[in-house]
């Protein structure tokens, strides 16, 4: 039983990592007043381009770097549409998701054909700092990105948002852009920056899946994780640390589902029930959080300087 639980916690941390990165990215975008529905596509493109570059160059790190860069570019494209042109945020975001998905699938088909077994690469190795203590090893044998996400990105994202003047600017342009502008903040530049940071984190989450967890790229690699991340942002009340708890709840439900499936229990209900469970848990969590959700006041509102 203890082994089951330790296993489960270890798997939870692994499964939560990509969603956590994406959710923090989305938190930054929304805190600046932009709902970025490009998240699902940005993750997908990050997963693809990371895999593609790593496969062609032989360098996993180069793949990861290019993936993050691609996320920044799609973040900036989102900014061009919603900040500069003031286009509807829902539609622009979904458009970017479709563009990213189409581009990835086009390039994937062109380079790898329509083969039935997805091509794979030698993925990142897990770190095992406590090799000699079995139970601790089960818990801590993780990818470097998991360590970075939980121990560096979460505190850094929190500190940046709440303890620096840049973070104050992000929050102010998402709450009251008129006042921020009057106080001398460049609303447009801050929103561009927040979307660029956010896009980079989303793509990093996608690249984690293809370069570390799976070592391959498949059509279903993201499978709605971006949408889950958006739900987690609301659940986490636009706070990176609380988003981490949300990511862990979803990750826990997913990991439990995986464990139950691999145990091969003969259950009277289809295994898809467990696959759907994390999504249903997320919706319930959203309903429970809904009453207290305090949306950034300027979310979805384009800012025009009159």
């Amino acid at each position: 039983m203890e082994i089951f639980i330790i296993n489960l916690i270890g798997a939870t941390l692994r499964v939560s990592t990509p969603i956590l990165l994406a959710a923090i990215g989305e938190t930054y975008a929304e805190r600046a007043g932009i709902l970025n529905l490009g998240i699902e596509g940005t993750m997908f493109f990050g997963a693809f381009i990371g895999f593609f570059v790593a496969d062609k160059s032989g360098s996993l790190w180069l793949g990861f770097l290019i993936a993050v860069l691609s996320g920044v570019i799609f973040g900036l494209l989102m900014a061009l549409l919603t900040v500069t042109l003031g286009v509807n945020q829902h539609v622009s975001g979904l458009g970017i998701t479709m563009l990213c998905t189409g581009l990835s699938l086009f390039a994937f088909r062109l380079n790898y054909g329509g083969r039935s077994i997805p091509p794979s690469i030698e993925s990142f190795q897990q770190l095992a700092p406590f090799k000699n203590i079995p139970w601790l090893n089960t818990l801590t044998e993780q990818y470097l990105f998991t360590y970075i996400a939980f121990l560096v990105i979460v505190p850094l994202a929190w500190w940046l948002l709440y303890r620096t003047s840049f973070g104050l600017k992000i929050r102010s342009v998402g709450e009251n852009p008129e006042a921020a502008d009057a106080a001398g903040v460049n609303v447009f530049a801050v929103r561009y920056a927040a979307l660029a940071i956010g896009g980079g984190l989303m793509a990093a989450g996608g690249a984690f899946l293809s370069l570390a967890q799976l070592g391959a790229f498949t059509h279903g690699i993201i499978a709605g994780r971006g949408w889950v991340a958006i739900a987690i942002v609301i659940f986490g009340n636009w706070n990176p640390v609380r988003a981490m708890w949300g990511a862990l709840i979803f990750g826990g439900a997913s990991a439990l589902q995986l464990r139950l499936q691999t145990m091969g229990l003969q259950l009277p209900i289809p295994y898809e029930t467990f696959l759907a469970l994390p999504y249903i848990v997320t919706i319930i969590a959203l309903v429970l959080a809904g009453r207290n959700a305090s949306y950034p006041a300027a979310l979805l509102k384009p800012y025009r300087r009159e």
Binding site: H90, G224, V228, L286
Partner: peptide, 11 residues
């Protein structure tokens, strides 16, 4: 928010 719930229900 209906955007998030409809997206999740698609999955």
């Amino acid at each position: 928010d209906e955007v998030v719930t409809t997206l999740l229900l698609n999955s």
